[in-house]
Structures are given as structure tokens and as C-alpha cells.
Simulated scan of single mutants.
Amino acid sequence: MPEMNQHGQTVNDIVPGWKGARVLSRTPLSGRVCRLEPLDAARHAADLFEAYAQGDDSDWTWLASTQPESIEATAHWLLGKVMDDALVPYAVIDLRTGRAVGLMSYMAIDRQQGTAEIGHVTWSRRMKQTAMGTESVWLLLKNAFEHDYRRLEWRCDSMNVASRRAAERLGFVWEGRLRNKLVRKARNRDSDILSIIESEWPERDAELQAWLAPDNFDAQGQQIRRLAAFR
């Protein structure tokens, strides 16, 4: 609880025994419908090129990247993420097929402060509006909070309403807008920032697990109850 210090100033909560968060290593994370594998340019390039080809350039409007035009270009793009020591990048594997259908990463990792961002989210149309999208984010959240992180962020272009709504559906709380944050593809980007903090996680975790449970899906894999129904 906030308290008064010796100078008559109100100060915020003490974080007892805080020693920082633990390393987020590049290790697999397994769920019921998808698995997150450490990104490997050679292993995942062909699958991801083919998955992204199911869509068109409109899927890339608000992303820093453009849609790769070949398997070789996909591998080169992925290698940049693999070689970036500031990222912990994952391929999203559809357990039904064993093939990569998207990617996402931990980024902006600050162990001393216990914060990280879920970013580089590049889902193909094979995983959008499926349980894989929800489960893949849940796996990253669960893993980070188990490693003592206190805050997980989601940032998106303020014009990317679908991304913001997806984050809010998952339980991220909108905190504000960083104006003129970036110049991306020769256009201004204002960045919306959302987060889940450690005190919120047990409730969010229970909601997500309830929604992801097998008995919440019919024989065709369609949800029976919306995630909002578990709040």
C-alpha cells in the first residue's frame, strides 16, 4: 500500500525481495493446439512463406516488414530476428499439421525492471481468429510471469484497430498513445500501448485457460462461449 515517508511525501508500494526477473531463454512452449518453437530460419522459412502467401499485402500494412516474395527472402527476414540478441523469437506451430503458421517474439526485455513486450507478431491467415492466436499469446504470458516478470506490454499502430481489440480481448489494459513515436514506411506512427501486470495475471490466466479448454469448442473447432463470457 502507498505510505508516507519521513519527508511527508506519499510513496508507492514496496516490492519486497525484488531481485529482477529471470532470463527468457529460447526454449519450446507447448499448448493444446499449438507449440512455440524457437525461430529457425532454415527450418521455418518454407512453411511461413507458404502460410503468408494465403493472404495479401493488406496483412502487412501496419507492420515494419513487407511480405517476403520468396522462400529465400523469408529465410533472410527470419535470420535477422534469429540473430538479434534483443529478441526471443518463436515460430507458431499448428499441432494438427506440424507446420509453422506465424511468428511472435519477446522484445524490449528489461530483467532489472521485470518488463517485456510481446512483439513482431506476424500471424498468417491460417491462425487468425483461431484458438492458436489466443493460445500462443497465453503461452508467452504464462512463461514470462513464471519467470518473475511484473509487466507484459503490447504495442500497436494506433490505426491498427484490430490489433488493439485483439489485445483488449486477451485482457491487456489500454494505457495511452505515444504520439509521433515512429516513422514507418514513410508514414507517421502513433503507438498505442497496453499491458497486463502481475496482480492481474491470475485472473487473466484463469479466463484464458477456461476459454481454451477443449469443452469450450465444438467438433468443428468453433468456440462455444466467447472469452468475454469468462470475465
Results as ranks from 00 to 15, higher is better:
residue 17 G to F: 15
residue 10 T to D: 01
residue 48 L to T: 10
residue 186 A to L: 10
residue 183 V to Y: 06
residue 231 R to D: 06
residue 38 P to E: 05
residue 199 S to G: 08
residue 71 I to Y: 05
residue 105 S to L: 00
residue 115 T to N: 10
residue 3 E to C: 15
residue 83 M to P: 03
residue 36 L to Q: 01
residue 186 A to Y: 08
residue 59 D to M: 12
residue 156 C to N: 01
residue 43 R to S: 03
residue 192 D to F: 00
residue 108 A to E: 02
residue 78 L to Y: 07
residue 225 R to K: 15
residue 205 D to R: 15
residue 166 A to W: 05
residue 117 E to S: 02
residue 149 Y to G: 06
residue 146 E to C: 08
residue 52 Y to D: 00
residue 7 H to Y: 13
residue 201 W to C: 02
residue 83 M to V: 12
residue 12 N to T: 05
residue 3 E to A: 12
residue 117 E to K: 04
residue 128 K to R: 15
residue 21 A to K: 02
residue 169 R to I: 07
residue 13 D to P: 02
residue 80 G to L: 11
residue 201 W to K: 01
residue 146 E to D: 15
residue 111 R to Y: 07
residue 26 R to T: 11
residue 151 R to E: 09
residue 101 V to K: 01
residue 142 K to R: 15
residue 149 Y to R: 00
residue 150 R to I: 08
residue 128 K to V: 14
residue 231 R to S: 12
residue 113 Q to L: 10
residue 63 L to E: 09
residue 64 A to R: 15
residue 5 N to P: 06
residue 126 R to T: 06
residue 33 V to E: 04
residue 69 E to T: 13
residue 77 W to Q: 11
residue 137 V to Y: 01
residue 95 L to I: 07
residue 48 L to R: 00
residue 114 G to A: 05
residue 18 W to L: 11
residue 34 C to A: 07
residue 171 G to T: 00
residue 81 K to R: 15
residue 180 N to G: 04
residue 36 L to S: 05
residue 41 A to R: 05
residue 144 A to C: 07
residue 146 E to F: 10
residue 98 G to K: 11
residue 163 S to P: 09
residue 202 P to W: 04
residue 28 P to S: 12
residue 149 Y to P: 01
residue 85 D to R: 11
residue 70 S to T: 12
residue 144 A to Y: 05
residue 192 D to R: 05
residue 174 W to S: 06
residue 200 E to K: 07
residue 72 E to M: 10
residue 154 W to E: 04
residue 59 D to C: 04
residue 81 K to T: 01
residue 194 L to Y: 03
residue 65 S to Q: 07
residue 206 A to M: 14
residue 38 P to C: 06
residue 211 W to E: 09
residue 49 F to R: 08
residue 5 N to D: 12
residue 15 V to W: 15
residue 29 L to T: 06
residue 224 I to A: 02
residue 186 A to V: 10
residue 124 S to K: 07
residue 81 K to V: 01
residue 112 Q to S: 13
residue 199 S to L: 08
residue 23 V to C: 10
residue 120 H to D: 06
residue 152 L to P: 00
residue 167 A to C: 10
residue 216 N to S: 13
residue 59 D to V: 11
residue 216 N to R: 12
residue 157 D to P: 06
residue 150 R to M: 10
residue 73 A to Q: 12
residue 75 A to N: 09
residue 192 D to C: 11
residue 124 S to V: 02
residue 148 D to S: 14
residue 146 E to G: 14
residue 73 A to D: 08
residue 95 L to H: 04
residue 17 G to A: 15
residue 164 R to M: 14
residue 54 Q to C: 08
residue 106 Y to I: 05
residue 223 Q to C: 13
